[in-house]
Structures are given as C-alpha cells and as structure tokens.
Amino acid sequence: MEEKPTEISTSKMFGGYNRRYRHFSPTLGCSMTFTVYFPPPSSPSQKFPILYWLSGLTCTDENFIMKSGAQRAASGEGIALVAPDTSPRGLNIEGEADSWDFGVGAGFYLNAKEEKWKNWRMYDYVVKELPKVLSENFEQLDTSRASISGHSMGGHGALTIYLKNLEKYKAVSAFAPVTNPTNCPWGQKAFSNYLGSDKSDWQEYDATLLIEKCSKISTPILIDQGEDDKFLHDQLLPHNFEDACKGANAPLVLRMQPGYDHSYYFISTFIDDHIHHHAKALKCA
C-alpha cells in the first residue's frame, strides 16, 4: 500500500528548508527515507525543477544534505535537491550487512534478479516510484523538469539511469563515478550477487557499455574525478568511459582534479559547478 510521506525533520538553510521524510515503498517492500531541499520561493505559485542526488556505498539520504553545501547554489538557482537512501533497510535478509560494499547501503541502483535480493530494486524506486511520490505530494515540485547526479556508486547510478532514460532527465553529472562496473571488483561483486551469472544482464547497468548505444545526448556529461582518489585505478575507471564516449561521439567533460580524494571535501569544492551545470539545462527545458 502507498502512503503519504511523513516529515521526520526540518532545518532551515540559505532561506530554504531541508525536509526529511519517511514513507513505505511498495517497490522495495520496506519503509524508506528521503530528503528534499526546498529553495526559497520567489512567489507562492513557483514550481521548482529537481536535481536528484544518488549517494555512494555506506551512505544514507543525509550524507549529501549534511556535507556537500549544495544548498547555497541550489537556493540561488531555485532548484530543489532530492536525496533518496541507497538501499532497502530493515528487511533482515541473511548476509545483508556482512560487508560494506554489498547489501544494506549498497543498492547499486539496479533491479536485482536473484530471488534472495528481490527487494533490491533501487532502479525502479529512483526512476518510477520516487518521482510519483514527489508529484503526488509536493505541488511545489515540477517533476517534469529533472536532472540527476551522484557520487561513486551513486555516480554509477546517475550515469546509467540517465543513459537508459534520456527522455526523463535534462542532464547528468557525477563525482568519482564507478563508470565501468563490469570490470571492477565492486561491480563484479554486486552484479554477480544481485543479477546472477549471466553477464548480459550486467551490461544493462554499465555506463561504459550503455554509452555505446546512445545518441542525441545534447547536454555534455560532467564528471569530476580526484587524481588522489585511492579508488581511481581499480574501481572507478573514468578513462574507460572517456574512451567509450569518444567512440560514440558523446559529449563529455571529464575534469581530473589534482590533489583531491574520494571524500565530501572534494565534492563540496566543486558542487557549485555541478548545480550551475544542471541549472542551465533545467532552465532551457
């Protein structure tokens, strides 16, 4: 059954409000939390475009809201920020909390095919259920004008969701995304457990492989990657994605940032650029 989201916390910031909600998700079969930053309206009837933010391994909906500082630019641009959680929680599936890179806090924004992990349907939650919840419960949000971004595992989610749904999102950006998960340990562990052994199923959630099938990407894909990120060479593989974009004639701005790591210090340094990137695309919509 669907239910209206219940507000569980609120904090004023840069003239707007961070509001955290809980609701029952029929898609995932459990209660979920998400946070929305509502910028200050310029008029009572103003409707805000949305930037969805997908967080990385071990994170919740609160990490980005509390650490990124994105609200300052979002307030100025009149963009709402929507941050969902990263996986189902509270289902008590055997093995769901045995490691930090799989199970709870590690939904990988896919629809699992293995029966044991049938509740792990974060792709459908982000693409279908959450926009419907927002549209039906928050009249100040314009879900028809949306962009998507994320970090690490969430960068993987943002890229793959965008590439599979070009009609739903005006632009995409990412920080240190897992761009080629079929070729890295995090992705191989998650995909083999959630999706099974058929690697053709894995390809549906790999941005480096998906970009080869895409056309008509009008807004450049923006990626920031720290050069001192300890996961750069074995997990993230941005140059694989860069090569695939060149092969597909897909517009990509890949910025390698000297000295920066994988943390929210890195994200908060460059987040304003990403907000402005999305604002331009959303306002042209």
Rank of each mutant, 00 (worst) to 15 (best):
E7Y: 04
I8N: 13
I8C: 13
S9V: 01
T10E: 09
M13W: 05
F14E: 15
F14M: 09
G15P: 07
Y21Q: 10
H23T: 09
H23D: 10
S25G: 14
T27L: 04
T27C: 14
G29S: 07
C30E: 13
S31M: 13
T33N: 11
T33R: 09
F34H: 15
T35W: 01
V36E: 00
Y37D: 04
F38D: 00
P39M: 02
P39Q: 04
P40M: 04
P40E: 08
S42D: 11
S42R: 11
S43H: 12
P44M: 03
Q46P: 02
Q46V: 05
P49Q: 04
P49V: 01
Y52D: 00
W53N: 15
L54D: 01
L54T: 03
L54K: 05
S55H: 02
S55P: 10
S55D: 12
G56D: 02
L57S: 10
L57M: 07
T58H: 10
C59G: 11
N63L: 03
F64N: 08
I65P: 00
M66K: 12
K67F: 08
G69I: 04
R72G: 01
A73C: 10
A74G: 12
S75D: 12
S75K: 07
E77F: 05
E77D: 15
I79M: 11
A83H: 14
P84W: 02
G90W: 10
G95H: 08
G95T: 06
A97E: 15
A97N: 15
S99N: 09
W100K: 07
G103S: 08
G103N: 06
G105L: 01
G105D: 03
A106T: 02
A106S: 12
F108Q: 13
F108M: 14
Y109C: 05
N111P: 15
K113G: 12
E114F: 05
E115K: 14
E115F: 09
K116G: 08
K118Y: 01
N119P: 09
N119V: 02
N119G: 04
W120K: 09
M122A: 10
Y123L: 04
D124L: 01
D124S: 12
Y125C: 04
V127Y: 07
K128R: 15
K128C: 14
L130P: 00
P131I: 03
V133W: 00
V133S: 01
V133I: 14
S135M: 08
S135L: 08
E136G: 07
N137K: 13
